[in-house]
Amino acid sequence: MTEPILQLIDCTRVHGQGETAVRALDGVSVQVQPGELVAVMGPSGSGKSTLLNLAGALDLPTSGQVVISGQSTSQLRPDDLAALRRRKVGVVFQDLNLIPSLTAAENIGLPLELDGRRVSEARRAAVGALHELGLDDLADRYPDQMSGGQQQRVAIARALVGERRLVLADEPTGALDSVTGDGVLAVLRARCDAGAAGLLVTHEARHAGWADRVIYLRDGKVVDEAVGR
């Protein structure tokens, strides 16, 4: 059995203190293997985004452990944590977070550039990622010169560029029509099929159908798990 790319081991995340403390996640354990796409579903406030933040090393658990590619996020220094995020984790945000002053290729190559790679090297990787998604013509366009679907695909390309093997997506199709949304999920699915691990937060059961497993969250706890495909 291969080592899981992402492991959440009995993770609890409490926001606030004392009487105002909110237990956003309560003893959640999840594993995502290479090649596996796991969907996370649940009502608003169930802890989906908190789970995604912990999985992406954007936040640390109050208790428990998050292990990404064998490294426990709680034991890393801030610099190493940042390096881990840059090199190992790709996140597709619901609101995309593309930088308006950078072209598509520059947005995609940004994590590589920030990691100290040469501009030409980052551009080469970005153009390759765009080519892979069939978006060759968009390399030099700014985000405001692209459609919503194209922007979302660029955001996915940014999450996948380089040598990342963990892709996290938070409602990646929220602002897209169904056809475009399916296209985006297909890309995500393809990357997982190619060996990456994926965690997809979604409200729609239809989108969860692209996943290998679905985890249902309620009040910060895993209440159900479905295996599909």
């Binding site: 056809v179 399916d182 297909a186 890309v187 393809a190 599909g228």
Partner: peptide, 22 residues
């Protein structure tokens, strides 16, 4: 719990094969 099927117009691809739409 069984996972609901995705829309008929966009069936998920088989694992490891050429992804849908690419």
């Amino acid at each position: 719990t069984p996972i609901p099927d995705p829309t008929p117009t966009s069936p998920p691809p088989a694992g490891g094969s050429q992804p849908h739409g690419i």
